[in-house]
């Protein structure tokens, strides 16, 4: 259930990054999540869909790469001005 907290922080971080880089819409967020973080990807997706702010992330897709270890990173975002 920590996925809600993580999704909330994710939205804040992407909002800040979008502002900094002049993006008005974010289409894709690529995440790297280490298996040891015990994050349920479906639950994170569900929480993100509930929390994502419109219009900036209205149509944003999460692409999650799971890998060994403790990473919990935003690898990159794709968007348009």
């Amino acid at each position: 259930m920590h996925e809600v907290g993580i999704a909330h922080e994710l939205c804040l971080a992407v909002e800040a990054a979008a502002r900094q880089h002049g993006l008005g819409r974010v289409q894709v967020i690529q995440l790297v999540i280490g298996h040891e973080r015990l994050v349920c990807h479906e639950a994170l997706q569900f929480a993100f869909d509930l929390l994502k702010p419109a219009p900036l992330m209205q149509d944003t897709r999460l692409q999650i790469e799971g890998r060994p270890g403790y990473d919990l990173l935003i690898d990159q975002i794709e968007g348009e001005p």
Binding site: A13, A17, H21, L23, L72, L73, I74, D75, Q76, I77, E78, G79, E80, P81
Partner: peptide, 8 residues
């Protein structure tokens, strides 16, 4: 536009 972040 792609923005590489690599941030926690």
């Amino acid at each position: 536009m792609r923005v590489k972040l690599k941030q926690p």
